[in-house]
């Protein structure tokens, strides 16, 4: 069945792959972006070229008013959001001793506050539909921890606790709330780390390589489907066996 699916941070990396996947699964896709309009437009063009329905919407998802305006616009143009993918995320890495309050606040706001704001905004429509999927992209950092990522790991662990709580709150209304926790995926975000670190990580992955954004999108696609109706409050780790 076709639903309206909103993907935050949908212009690049994992979000882009998720947007393309959900469109391929027949959903109308909203590609949210913060700054890179050209990349978001490109995703929408790729979807519409394949006969799908898609729109872009700019919003800083850590901002209360911007999130309200985004949902209003989407509901007017496409209808209620019934699949929400909280994907937007940033990193401001550094050792804790060198991590200033700005680096902490920015990461928590974009990665965790956004999940609260968007989930709350989407929930009204989902309750009316008596059907909904909230899927948030966490990280293996939020489960295992990662030196230099205290802020990022805290935000990603926060997503897991948040999702379990909401899953219990609204499970009786056919709304499931799940998390996908990627390991090392080939994106702009991990490219910043350099090839040396990438090779070192790959050597610790059971599958022996970094992951592809499409492999995360496949997990999201499953959790968004009717097949996953009995799966809620879960964290699906998609890391090639990195954190075993």
């Amino acid at each position: 069945m076709s639903r309206v699916a909103l993907v935050t941070g949908g212009s690049r990396g994992i979000g882009r792959a998720v947007a393309l996947r959900l469109a391929a699964d027949g959903h109308a896709v909203v590609v949210n972006y913060a700054a890179n309009m050209a990349a978001a437009d490109e995703v929408v063009e790729a979807i519409t070229a394949n006969g799908g329905t898609a729109m872009v919407v700019q919003a800083d998802v850590g901002d209360t008013d911007a999130v309200s305006a985004m949902f209003k616009e989407v509901e007017e143009r496409l209808g209620r959001v019934e699949v929400l993918v909280n994907n937007a995320g940033i990193t401001r890495d550094g050792l804790l001793l060198r991590m200033g309050p700005d680096a902490w606040d920015q990461v928590i706001e974009t990665n965790l506050r956004s999940v609260y704001l968007c989930s709350r905004a989407a929930m009204r429509g989902m309750l009316r539909s008596r059907w909904g999927r909230i899927i948030s992209v966490s990280s293996i950092s939020g489960i295992s921890g990662n030196p230099g990522q205290a802020n990022y790991a805290a935000s990603k662990a926060g997503i897991i606790g948040f999702s379990k709580s909401i899953a219990r709150e609204i499970g009786s209304r056919n709304i499931t709330v799940n998390v996908v926790a990627p390991g090392f995926i080939e994106t702009d975000m991990t490219e910043e780390l350099g090839t040396e670190i990438a090779q070192e990580v790959a050597s610790r992955v059971a599958v022996g390589r970094l992951g592809r954004p499409e492999e995360i999108a496949a997990a999201v696609g499953y959790l968004a489907s009717d097949d996953a109706a009995y799966v809620t409050g879960q964290t699906l780790v998609v890391d090639g066996g990195l954190a075993l």
């Binding site: 009204r124 309750l127 009316r128 709150e169 609204i170 209304r173």
Partner: peptide
């Protein structure tokens, strides 16, 4: 409590 919220909506 969720039912009350839904009623008010």
């Amino acid at each position: 409590s969720l039912g009350v919220v839904e009623l008010l909506m």
